[in-house]
Design a protein around this nucleic acid. Structure first.
Lengths: 152, 152
DNA sequence: ACTGAACCTCAAGCCAGGTTGAGGGATTGG
DNA sequence: CCAATCCCTCAACCTGGCTTGAGGTTCAGT
């Protein structure tokens, strides 16, 4: 068995569909870590394929780097994650997704109310309710998809 | 009746909950237009309150500036929009919202499949289906919420 | 007439999530 | 052993959606 079965970054990129620069970026952000060979080049574990694939999927599902990092923090230190580990973490993401969907549905229903009332400019409009307003989290595009919103 | 019932930018900001700088930004982006008084200061029509409120709401619902502009383009030129105009455009937004919700639900279901199969790294995983992959539209945060995705 | 608040323009900055490019060093197959 | 790839770092740039600041003008009330 090849014990030192380490992958250079290009291979990893090919296997995961990520760009090399993106993988380096994720490493800099602490989402994945790499060993170095004597020449100073990155060498990844095979299990990092899965880790990076997870990152990619979570990205596509709309999670931010920070959120993904938080999820990954739940993985065991020291040993290669098992399928059960990945299943657990995937469920957690599913829950996040569910919350976002629910949130969008609430918004939609609220909009429906406003279509009828035409009150776009009035404070009494449900869409204006400060209690339910999305917190602007810093600059950049504000995703409405934010979990920290009152359940109405 | 006050015919020249024009509002300075600060008033508009107060009435809409937007910041003055945001309103100027929207003007630069063509989402709203302003008259100027002899001193060169912006003067807005009362109907712009509604227009900007709409922008704000659409923003909160997750639409980009560009999408909002496209919606606003459907408003009549030359006359002040009626409630019916706003209702029509709000319905259009509702449809967009519906598509996004449906899209997230598809994603979620796909993730469910993957939770079981644990195939995070395999091309056969539904989340990897290139046909259904979100188009990365330029740099910047990629919103998963993209309408241009196959209906599966 | 004056003062203070509100307004103006333009440039620069910020965050996310990367990409691109310059200027090298490492690896690998023939 | 040598060229073709691949890899390295670091800095600069990009979009989106604004905010902040500098430096100056206008407006409104007294």
């Amino acid at each position: 068995m090849p014990r030192t079965d380490l992958l250079p970054i290009g291979h990893l990129a090919e296997r995961t569909g990520l760009s090399v620069s993106a993988i380096r970026f994720y490493e800099a952000r602490g989402l994945v870590s790499a060993l170095r060979n004597r020449g100073g080049q990155r060498r990844f574990l095979r299990s990092d394929i899965r880790r990076l694939s997870f990152i990619r999927i979570a990205q596509q599902l709309g999670l931010s780097i920070e959120e993904i990092q938080a999820e990954l923090a739940a993985l065991p230190q020291g040993r290669t994650p098992t399928q059960a580990d990945w299943t657990r973490i995937s469920r957690s993401i599913r829950a996040t997704l569910d919350r976002r969907i629910a949130m969008l549905e609430r918004m939609r229903d609220r909009l429906d109310g406003c279509i009828g009332c035409g009150c776009l400019s009035l404070p009494k409009c449900a869409l204006y309710n400060p209690q339910d307003r999305v917190h602007a989290r810093g600059p950049g595009p504000r995703l409405i998809i934010d979990d920290e919103v009152q359940p109405l």
